[in-house]
């Protein structure tokens, strides 16, 4: 893929990305969602974000990597503890990255 086609693909990606974000806002304001859907929407952040986090900690090259010396699992655990205990964004990011660097430096 190159040149004009690639520009076209990027435009198409932009249109789809915008439509997904835009239409529910303008279509749903006129009527109320059923209570069970409103309740369901409250769990969207937790369920979705965990789906972006856990695979990166629990898998390696597409397979489960649950062994206790998996450096990304340990670094992720440290980051979860830091985020929960101190509620500090930079501390969490730096603590997680530093843990991974140390473990990789140790040859894990």
């Amino acid at each position: 893929m190159k040149g004009p086609l690639l520009w076209g693909v990027i435009l198409g990606l932009g249109l789809i990305a915008f439509a997904l974000r835009y239409y529910p806002i303008v279509l749903l304001e006129r009527f109320h969602l059923p209570p069970v859907l409103q309740q369901a929407l409250r769990y969207v952040p937790a369920a979705t974000l965990a789906g972006l986090v856990l695979p990166a900690l629990l898998t390696h090259e597409g397979h489960w990597a649950l062994h206790p010396l998996n450096p990304r699992l340990i670094a992720g655990g440290v980051a979860i503890f830091l985020a929960w205990r101190f509620k500090n964004v930079l501390l969490t990011l730096l603590g997680g990255m530093a843990t991974l660097w140390v473990l990789q430096g140790l040859g894990l």
Partner: peptide, 26 residues
Amino acid sequence: PLCFLVLMVPALRNRPSLLAALVGGL
């Protein structure tokens, strides 16, 4: 994933949201 983790942890406010994250993630 660390960027998303930073957002996820404060969203785990009670047992149902914790379960939602565990099931969703696994």
